[in-house]
Amino acid sequence: MNSPKPSSLVSKRDDVYAQRTATRIWQELPAEDNAYITAQSRCHGYDLMALMQKRSFVDVLYLLFRGELPGPEEAALFEALMLGFINPGPRHPATRAAMNAGIGKTDPSLILPIALTTLSGKHNAAGSLEEGMRFLRKQQHKPVQETALQLLVELERPAEGDCHIAPGFGSVYNGIDLMSKQIAEHLVQMPGAGSALKWGQGFAQALTEKGMGWLATGVVAAVLTDLGFQPRTAAGIYQIISAPGLFAHGVEMANKPMTAMPFIADEDYSIEYEN
């Protein structure tokens, strides 16, 4: 008789799982008469009601991820970043996804999850932020010209489309992203600007002759690096920053007729199937 195959012998592992979930972020203190109802909430030790009275939304957003309230320079830099990138703009694929959801009469509560999912990608989107932060963390202590020269020598420009020489840096529509450049120039002069932003500014300038520079994702990655955020948080922070603009554009379309956005005509839709 054949012995049973190893995979057919199914048994529990003796892994030990936590009995309760733990967090360092938030503490909910129960009501005296009901252990399920929260009577007081604390964020990293600070009473939520006191935070509401004394601090800004940006301060508490920073606190959630960093565990401490920001100093004035850090808070100002973070707020300026959030304002600068509050809207990826109506031509960004994530915004267009939001608008498609809106015009298509998708439930408004799903417009933002749809747009943020599109924004999770790795091309000009949140999915490239972690890599961008790791790049800046590693490169910011090296001379800008050394990195620029090395990457330009190694660069293989794609035959079509844009060229991204490093995560967060490259061309848009064959040129320099002027809005990201202006936002970076503003941020880098703020007192809270740190070495990653300054290094990135030098790197972007070194790429100018080649028609490349900052991308939005690079600027956000640089500021988050300077503010001490962990690379793994970067994609989500970028999504939070972009969410207002994405949702505003999506919900703007929700009350318009379906004909208010283009539907590509048959003569402009071609099928080029290669067997």
């Binding site: 309760r20 733990a22 604390r42 004394k54 309230l69």
Partner: peptide, 19 residues
Amino acid sequence: RCDDIVYEGKSVRVVPEKC
């Protein structure tokens, strides 16, 4: 219940005024 989540963070502290 509230105590089904274990809090392992900072102890209670006073919120500083914004500078």
